[in-house]
Amino acid sequence: MDYHSDRFEDFSLMIYMGNSLIGLLPANLKDNTLYSHQGLTYGGLFLESNYSIDSIFIALRDYLIEFEIEYLKIRSLPVIYQSANSKRVTNYLQGISSILYHSNKVLAIDYSLPLNIHKTKLKHYRKNHIKGFEIREESSFESFWNRVLIPRLKSRHNTSPVHTLNEITLLKSRFIEQIKQYNIYLKGEILAGITIFDKGHVVKSQYGATNDLGENQRALEYLFIELIYKYKTEGKRYFSMGTVMDDAYPEGYNVGLMRQKIELGCKEYQQDYYEIKLV
């Protein structure tokens, strides 16, 4: 997390039983509140098995009160990422006097079920086979970031990617096999790209964007379907397309983006955020 350490007051914790490390809480401090680290998409409390969650939370509460921290805001993992231990934590959070103050919609394909890609998308996918698209796994992010992603986000949403080009390049150098960049070309011209984070049994499309020419050619849709088939063949459990939450919409999420992801075969999963008053 140190690539964006200047943006947060880190207060990550390690929990020990004697000399044994039994828990981790990536976290940052803001005012009088400790947050599940706001620089991470997911996070929460990670524990070894066979330890009392109640005892750990009591110890955690006592420790935070020493620093005059009044609130703990902690998130659960979406179901697609949960292990038996993280489910124990989620169940505990639901059972104590916590407040559920926010929920994210996370969209993902469950490969244990038949693929459910919309028939219109499959029709265009089959037609586009003859166009001569070329898909490349790239070692550099520069073309996608500078020629597709940054201009697209700027023109459509007046925003920038969460990761700068330097940051994603640094992350790639540290996680060579876990971060992949796939670009799609037509006659040598880049049309779209998808940045994949490989999390073991889950792969996540961290970024997906197209330029105007690619949009006209339905290139991003074609690339998504190719990658959906690829990771199914490789035996992954889920293909996550991330969240669709957006406060700019009355519904609290991007309706059009959610529809697009559902038409690519995604189901909706929930990630809950809990607030615990410590004092």
Rank of each mutant, 00 (worst) to 15 (best):
Y125T: 06
S98D: 10
E70H: 14
P114H: 10
R88H: 10
E142P: 02
E137N: 10
H124G: 05
D110T: 11
N146E: 06
I150V: 08
R126S: 12
D62M: 03
K154L: 12
N128C: 05
R152H: 09
E66C: 11
Y101A: 07
R152L: 02
S139W: 03
H124E: 12
A84E: 06
N128V: 04
K131M: 12
K73R: 14
E134G: 08
P114F: 07
F133V: 09
L153Q: 06
F67M: 09
E134V: 15
Q94R: 13
I74L: 09
H124V: 12
N128A: 11
V79H: 07
N128P: 02
T120S: 13
S76V: 10
K154A: 13
R152C: 03
Y81W: 04
L113N: 11
N85I: 04
S143R: 10
I74N: 01
A108P: 02
L107I: 08
N146F: 01
H124W: 12
L153F: 07
H102T: 04
E66Q: 11
S97Q: 15
K123N: 13
E137G: 03
V148C: 00
R126H: 13
K123I: 09
N146D: 03
K154E: 14
P151K: 01
P151N: 00
R156H: 15
S97Y: 15
S86C: 05
